[in-house]
Computed example of a mutant assay.
Amino acid sequence: MQPMKFCQSCRLPLVPQVQGTEADGSKSESYCMYCYQNGAFTEELTMEDMITRRAPVFANSNPDMTIQEAFDLLHELLPKLERWKTIG
């Protein structure tokens, strides 16, 4: 079994139903459809913007996690993702 892939922008599990698209219409192997379509990011965001958006969703999908714990975890995880490695 292959390890779970995650969007390299928001860390959403990258399952086929939510894969973004490249400029040629093919499925992106790195980004979800919410972050990336037609070969470009859907929005210009800072990493802090992404953390602020994703923390409540992340906490909601993990019932034992507080929003503060989600913020802290995303501050650890997002800098390791491709989109944020060079931007920070």
Rank of each mutant, 00 (worst) to 15 (best):
Q2G: 07
P3M: 11
F6K: 02
C7R: 03
Q8G: 09
S9W: 02
C10R: 05
R11S: 09
L12Q: 02
L12H: 10
L12S: 01
P13K: 07
L14V: 01
L14C: 08
L14D: 01
L14Q: 02
V15P: 03
P16D: 15
E22Y: 11
D24I: 09
D24A: 06
D24W: 13
G25F: 09
K27F: 13
E29T: 10
S30W: 07
Y31K: 02
Y31C: 01
M33N: 15
M33D: 15
M33V: 14
Y36E: 04
Q37A: 14
N38I: 12
N38M: 14
G39I: 07
A40K: 15
F41M: 08
T42C: 11
T42F: 00
L45Q: 10
T46S: 15
M47A: 08
M50Y: 06
T52R: 15
T52L: 15
R53W: 13
A55M: 05
P56Y: 15
V57H: 14
A59Y: 10
S61E: 07
S61K: 12
N62L: 12
P63H: 11
D64P: 05
D64N: 15
M65T: 00
T66D: 03
T66R: 11
T66K: 14
I67Q: 06
Q68G: 00
E69C: 07
A70V: 10
A70L: 09
D72H: 07
L73S: 04
L73W: 06
L74P: 05
E76I: 03
L77W: 06
L81A: 10
R83P: 00
T86F: 04
T86V: 04
I87G: 03
I87D: 02
I87K: 03
G88F: 02
